[in-house]
């Protein structure tokens, strides 16, 4: 299978701190992969490099055969990468439906003068967008909650709206930053199933950052371990579980026993 995303020697520094250090990896189209690592390992920074929020000092990022490391965030989104955030970042004072509609922004083609005139193309597009937003809402099991303000929704629902908003931009690659943070075991399990279904049904490639090892081991086809910004291991869940370097990276920090870590 072809790689949808490849990075080569990506390095991102903040002053003297090297947050991501010479990081190369690739993920296959239609796969579910995870990046794990102790806190501060550079996982989220790496996400920010992919989405164009940060520009890496060195290295290349290739998505669907095109280099994207120099693009702006919105251009990257248009190319088909979207993300969710570790600490949910919905537009709190917009409704769930409006949030999803904003996610659709890059797929709406009408120009503003058309909106002013209110021509047929504009009206059709708005109607379709609304229908699609409703569909997405249904897809994440939040039917009927579209008019609720995002910030009034329960935590789990906010997570799902955020995913729906990300899906609204019709991505080929979905980046999920600790999607199960703050969830209990049952909720996590539900979300895991949801992600797997999503991939199976629509073929979207998924890349996760995750702390909950049960989720990671259960869902990932490939796991990459980051420590101090560098890759220390990569492979199938089983291989990672028994990798002495990984265990050291975690236990060396005096973390909890085994590989069960709660979210930061």
């Amino acid at each position: 299978m072809a790689a949808i995303l490849r990075t080569l020697n990506v390095t991102k520094r903040f002053g003297g701190l090297v947050a991501v250090d010479d990081f190369s990896f690739e993920i296959e189209e239609g796969s579910i992969s995870s990046i794990i690592g102790p806190n501060g390992a550079g996982k989220t920074t790496f996400f920010n490099c992919i989405t164009g929020f940060y520009t890496p000092e060195e290295g290349l990022i290739e998505f669907k055969g095109k280099q994207i490391q120099a693009l702006r965030t919105d251009q990257v989104t248009k190319m088909g990468i979207t993300r969710t955030y570790q600490n949910i970042r919905l537009f709190a004072n917009m409704t769930a439906l409006e949030n999803i509609l904003v996610g659709m922004h890059s797929r709406l083609k009408t120009w503003w003068p058309e909106a002013v005139i209110g021509n047929k193309r504009f009206r059709d597009e708005e109607k379709n967008a609304l229908a699609k937003a409703q569909e997405l809402l249904e897809f994440v099991n939040l039917k009927g909650l579209g008019d609720q303000l995002a910030r009034n929704l329960p935590y789990g629902a906010q997570r799902r709206v955020e995913i729906a908003r990300a899906l609204a931009s019709e991505p080929d690659l979905l980046l999920l930053d600790e999607p199960t943070a703050g969830m209990n075991t049952q909720e996590s399990a539900e979300l895991t199933d949801f992600i797997r279904n999503l991939r199976d049904e629509s073929g979207i490639t998924v890349l996760l950052i995750e702390h909950d090892m049960r989720v990671v081991m259960g869902i990932s086809e490939k796991i990459t371990v980051l420590d101090y910004g560098s890759k220390i291991a990569e492979g199938k869940p089983k291989e990672i579980q028994n990798n002495p370097k990984v265990i050291e990276a975690y236990l060396g920090r005096g973390a909890a026993s085994g590989l069960e870590f709660s979210a930061a």
Binding site: F53, T77, Y85, R89, M94, E98
Partner: peptide, 21 residues
Amino acid sequence: SSLGRAWVALREDEDVAEAMG
């Protein structure tokens, strides 16, 4: 229109708005 929604999104959270394309 979508422009109006984008404005509100910008006001709410500039970074996320950009990440939404």
